[in-house]
Every structure is written in C-alpha cells, then in structure tokens.
Nucleic acid binder design. Structure first.
Lengths: 120, 120
DNA sequence: CTGTATCCGAGAGGATACTG
DNA sequence: CAGTATCCTCTCGGATACAG
C-alpha cells in the first residue's frame, strides 16, 4: 500500500492548508525566510523587487494569520519589524527544499530549452 | 554554509517554475496524480467535486504545456483520455509528499483549532 | 521605517450551453 | 466522454498617495 494521499480523509484539510500558500508572492516570501532567516519589511522590498507594498504587507499578514510567519515589532522610532517562520512554518522547509530541488531538475529533464546561441 | 536558496542565481528560474504550480487547482490535481496514478478527465471531475470543466481542462492544459503532466488520447469513440505525470512531474512527488506531511503537522502545532464539539 | 487607503485594470475562476 | 465557447463576477494585484 503506497497510497499517501487519501482524498476522502485528507483532501478537505489539505486544500485548506494549500490555500495558505496560494498567491503570487507567498512562496517567494517564504523562501527568503528559509533556514531560520529573519527579515525586515524593508529587506523584503529589496529582496523582491517586483512586489508592491500593498502585496507585501497583505501577504505577510495572511501568512501571520495562518500561523506560518511570526511578526515581531520593536516599539521604537523609527519602527522596526522582524519576520521569521513560526515553528510550524519551519516545518515547511523540507517542502520548500524539495520544491527548490525540483526546480533545479528542470534543466535535467528539459535541457537547453532556450538553447545556447553562443555557438552561432 | 547552509544557504540553499540563492536569490541572485536561482530566483529568476525558481519563480518561473513556481508559477507553474499556481492556481487554485494545480496542486490538487497533481496530488491525484501522485505516485504514478493515472486519471481520466471524468475521474478528476469525481475526485475534485468543486472544479468546473473549464478550470479542469485549462489547468490540465497548462500542466501539460509546462511538461509536468502527460496527456494520452485513445483514438476511439467515445473518447478516452488519460493523464499522468511526466518524468519531471514525478520528480515533484517528494515535494508533494513534504507538503502533505506539513499539512498533517498542522494539528500538532495548532491542536483542535475547531475544538471537539463531540463533547457537547 | 512600516505600513494603510483608495482606485483601477487584468485575469482567475464559475455557470451554462454547445460539440465531435 | 472530453472537452470548447461565452458571459459574468469577483478577487488579485499594481500604482499612487497618505500616515504613525
């Protein structure tokens, strides 16, 4: 019995959890929190050039509400806020890592899709 | 050096690959193809009650175009079409598995969030 | 520095009808 | 059976301005 995914028993819960990772920036944000990394709001802005403040704040809030990311505010001026993975969030690292490895394997299965035109 | 994710070198490629998994149904579909499972169009309709035909076909096409899912058409009537993971798609299984394990760990970190009403 | 508020366009996704 | 076509709605996400 190699079945790992049982639709009737797990699907409902799995879909819920999966939704927490949806959105254009969630995974990207999480990757930058990988491995215990701690980032500030402004760090993300630098690390993820394409993201808007609205999206960054919004995604961060959702991640926080879902218990994946922890937000720590330092009561000082100017404000300082740190983001890091919660315990459960860190449990996501193996999956993040597997995803990364999969991404890297793309070249192995689809070599030089945008071939080297250097030879021309 | 424990860094696994290198923004400057991998981000561009990783984001691309990550996009292939975005969308409300992609992962769900993939989970049903887990472990070498082969499914027909109508199987998915039964397995994923909430999905519309449009979305099912569309997501399947994209997955196919991205080289994650293979589509096999049997030239007969009535038509028969089978879907399965490509080689690269199967390389996703470890990640899918890790995601599943993570989802299951939710209870461990957030026990009985919707408390047992059976006691009432 | 770390956000929030508002407006706006694009596209995701749903419902329904139709076809080879 | 396995889709496609069309329409419609709603949310996602970007841009800009403002605030504690």
């Amino acid at each position: 019995m190699r079945r790992i995914y049982t639709p009737t028993s797990a699907a409902s819960g799995v879909e819920d959890v999966l939704k927490m990772l949806e959105g254009r920036w969630k995974l990207i944000i999480l990757f930058h929190l990988f491995d215990g990394n701690v980032q500030r709001y402004s760090d993300f802005e630098k690390l993820i050039p394409g993201i808007s403040q609205k999206m960054l704040a919004q995604q961060l809030r959702q991640l926080e509400a879902d218990g994946i990311v922890a937000r720590k505010v330092y009561p000082q001026v100017p404000p300082k806020v740190e983001y890091r993975l919660t315990e459960w969030g860190q449990a996501l690292c193996p999956a993040l890592d597997a995803l990364l490895k999969w991404a890297e394997q793309k070249e192995a299965f689809h070599p030089s899709e945008h071939a080297d035109d250097a030879s021309a």
